[in-house]
Amino acid sequence: MQLAITLLAAAFLLVPTIQSVLAGLTVNYFQGLKSGLTLQWVIEVWRLYSGSIFLSMGIALACLVVTLIIGVPAAYAMARNPGRMTRALEEFISLPLAIPGLALALALLQLYGSYKGFRLSWTFILVGHVLYTLPFMVRSVMSVLAAIDLKTLEEGAASLGAGPVRRFIDIVIPNALPGILAGALTVVTLSIGEFNLTWMLHTPYLKTLPVGLADSYASMRLEIASAYTLIFFVMIVPLLLAMQWASARAQRMTQ
C-alpha cells in the first residue's frame, strides 16, 4: 500500500517528463514514436530561442557574482554577531521567499518602472533574481560559519598579527567554502529557472529561458515546446543534482 502510493506519486512526476523528452525527439507526436526520431525540433528551438538560453546563463552568472559579493561578507558579519538584530535582518532579506514573486515584481515596477534606462536593461531582471536568490546564499554560508569556532580561529590569527581583512580572506572564506559552494549552486539553479518575477520584469527583447518556455507553450506546436523543455531539463537536472550533493555535504559539516 505504502509502496503503491510512493510508486504512483513517482509515476505522476516522471511520466510527463518522459513524455516531454519523447515529444521533443519524435517527428510527429500525434502519430507517436513510429513516425521516427529526429533532432529537427531541437535544432529549430536553438534557431528560435538560443538567445534566451544565453541570456539566462549570463544572468545566472551575474547573479552569482552579485550574491557572492553581497552575501558572503554579510553572512560573515551576521555569524559574528548572532542575536536579535541579526535574526530580524535575516527574516527581512528572506521576505522574497515568502512573498510571491508576482507581488515583488509589481513593487519593483511601481518604484523603478519609469526609469526607462534601468527598466529596459537586463540589470532590471538581474535585480529580481538577486532579490530571490540572495537569502539562499546568506543562509547557506551562515549555517556553515555558525558551526565552526570562528572566534577562536580568528583570535589565533589576530595574535599572530593578521588584520581583519587578512583574516576574512585566509580564515573565513576557506572555512566557509562548502557553504559558498552549496549557496552558489542553489543561486545558479534558481536563477535559471526563475519565472514569476522575470515574467513581469522582462521586455520583448530580453527573454530568459523560462520566459521563452512560456512563450513556446502558448504559441508553438507541442514538439517544439517539448524540445525546448528538453533543453531546459538537460541544463537544470545536473545543476540540481550538484546542488543537492553540495547542500548535503555542507549540512553534514554543520552537525
Binding site: 512526476l13 516522471l14 510527463p16 516531454s20 519565472f195 523560462p210 518556455l213 507553450y217 515546446a225
Partner: peptide
C-alpha cells in the same frame, strides 16, 4: 532513483509544471 524522481521537480519553474499537466 525513486528518491531522485520524487525530488527533482523541485527546480522546475511553475510554467514547466503547467506544461507537464498539459502533457498529461
Amino acid at each position: 532513483v525513486l528518491l531522485s524522481i520524487l525530488t527533482l521537480p523541485l527546480a522546475f519553474p511553475g510554467v514547466v509544471v503547467g506544461f507537464m499537466i498539459i502533457l498529461l
